[in-house]
Amino acid sequence: MKLLNITNRKRESYQVSFRHSILLECALGIAAVTNTPLHDSMEKSKVYWSNLRENLSPELQAALDYVEKHNTWKTLLQLCHYHHCENLQGFLSFIEELEDSQLKFYSLPYLGNELQEMRRGASEGDKEGCLGLMEATKEHNFFPDYIQFVCESDTAKLKVHLKTVMTKWYEEFVQPSELEICEILQRDVASKREMGEKLTSEQLVEWATGGIDYRAEPNVQEVLLVPQQIYRPWNIEADMEGMKIFYYPVSDESIAPDDRYTPDHFLVAKYKALGDEARLKMVKHMVEKKCTLQELTSLLDLGKSTIHHHLKILRAAKLVDSRDGVYTLRKQALTFMEDDLQRYLDR
């Protein structure tokens, strides 16, 4: 599980819902192709993304350059959630009909109920409100610049940009395989809902996302799970009013349902990670307590570089988490392994 955090909020139960949309997949594709620092860690290779972008029309390339500079993919995602359009034309009409302040309000990130009035003021031209939002997000990697861009934007030009990049990306990249993409998203939601009948809300989120241990927080009544193929293997996290959103990577099974014999990548990784005596010993120790690298080195009488290598494998398999130098076993992930194996065998 990889997590790309685009929220600025700090961490009661919640309900889980699903939504799949070709428009959300479009917006996420625009985000993916313009997030060049992450191309080395995506399922598609860096060369793939580079070649893709070079073969797009000059108009779309220019629009994507603007996205990369100002992170307007975030605007597209937010707008998709504020108005659930069934098709591209409906989405374009929605954008065109928005009043200036409403467009800016929808575009600005949700930062919690306590900052909603400031967000509203910023969208209506209050410079102090804009500065306040920028200050509140100063530790975020792109929110301050994005907030300033939205507040200072000429909305007529912004609308033209949003409609252009969404239309051209859909026509040139998504539309040729739209039916296949929709079928993949539908299959994945169906499988997750089936599994959800056996799990708590927290367990379902963890299983669907491949390892995110999300606990309820104030003002969040719902977790929305949105399947996506384009950004695999990353999860993308976002906030909306009363809602936490995870755009999670669809499973291999959803992509190739007729292939009964190829197991999911993470299922293989988990069993491989446990197929080693030293790593099993490490898991045993972490069942008993959280451990540091130094503690594991002493307990197993192995070198730090060797222990670090084994921990890297366990983390890649989503069996272990690390925070501030302390390693924790994801016990629920071990529990899921039996169910995942049985699902594979029953396929």
Score class of each variant (00 low, 15 high):
Glu25Phe: 12
Gln61Pro: 07
Leu76Ile: 07
Asn8Phe: 09
Tyr14Ser: 04
Ala62Trp: 04
Cys26His: 03
Leu77Pro: 00
Leu23Trp: 11
Leu23Gly: 02
Gly29Cys: 13
Met42Glu: 14
Cys80Asn: 07
Cys26Asp: 13
Glu25Val: 12
Val16Cys: 07
Asn8His: 09
Val47Gly: 05
Leu64Glu: 00
His39Asp: 05
Ile30Leu: 04
Tyr14Met: 05
His70Thr: 01
Leu24Phe: 12
Ala32Trp: 00
Tyr66Gly: 04
Ser50Thr: 01
Pro58Asp: 08
Pro37Leu: 08
Leu24Ser: 07
His39Glu: 11
Phe18Tyr: 15
Tyr66Arg: 08
Thr72Glu: 02
Met42Ser: 11
Ser41Asn: 12
Pro58His: 10
Lys44Phe: 14
Asn71Pro: 04
Thr75Val: 14
Leu38Arg: 04
Asn5Gln: 13
Leu52Gln: 02
Glu25Leu: 14
Trp49Val: 05
Ser45Leu: 12
Ala32Met: 13
Ala63Lys: 02
Val47Arg: 09
Ile6Lys: 01
Val33Glu: 00
Val16Ser: 04
Leu24Lys: 05
Ser41Ala: 13
Pro58Gly: 01
Glu25Tyr: 11
Gln15Val: 14
Ser50Cys: 11
Lys44Ala: 14
Gln15Ile: 14
Asn5Pro: 02
Leu38Gly: 00
Tyr66Cys: 08
Leu52Ser: 06
Tyr82Cys: 05
Lys46Asp: 12
Ile6Ser: 05
Phe18Ala: 05
Val16Lys: 00
Ser41Val: 10
Thr75Cys: 08
Tyr82Thr: 07
Thr7Glu: 03
Ala32Gln: 07
